[in-house]
């Protein structure tokens, strides 16, 4: 997610569509999906045409790790699971798996949820974004 305490307001604001509702890109020529957003299709180059695409939020666990030594701002949530999720549209993204959940396995189905990621102290901004929930 790359959210940290000193992220500028402009960067946070610019990433809202991406973080809140998984808005990425698609090359309408070769039909390849990209997340995060891209301005240029690396395959089609100047012949391609990039359009905004809303991802379904459905995917599977590609890999995961249990976090016992969290970075600053995530201490209360440890231990928690972070995973690389392969979205059904193709791209892989890194995100937290929400609690409570049973032991995560590679290949488990997940769906995106909107959660609080981090707070900039008591008076700062609250950052929201996607995490994933296991689907039975």
């Amino acid at each position: 997610m790359g959210v940290n305490m000193d992220e500028s307001l402009a960067i946070t604001w610019r990433r809202i569509p991406e973080r809140y509702r998984l808005e990425g890109s698609e090359c309408t020529k070769c039909k390849t999906s990209y997340f995060p957003t891209r301005k240029l299709c690396p395959a089609c180059r100047r012949k391609g045409s990039i359009a905004t695409k809303m991802f379904s939020g459905k995917g599977t666990i590609y890999s995961f790790s249990e976090i016992y030594a969290p970075p600053a701002g995530f201490e209360l949530e440890a231990p928690y699971t972070i995973a690389i999720v392969q979205l059904e549209e193709g791209p892989k993204i890194t995100a937290q798996i929400v609690a409570p959940h049973p032991q995560v396995k590679i290949g488990d189905s997940v769906e995106a949820v909107f959660r609080k990621i981090q707070e900039d102290g008591q008076e700062g901004l609250i950052h929201y974004g996607f995490k994933f929930r296991l689907v039975k």
Binding site: L76, E77, Q96, V98, A99, P100, V113, F114, R115, K116, I117, I126, Y128, K131
Partner: peptide, 13 residues
């Protein structure tokens, strides 16, 4: 609520 849930996240769900 979970640690990462508040009135906004539950409203979205």
């Amino acid at each position: 609520p979970a640690l990462d849930e508040d009135s906004a996240t539950m409203a979205v769900e």
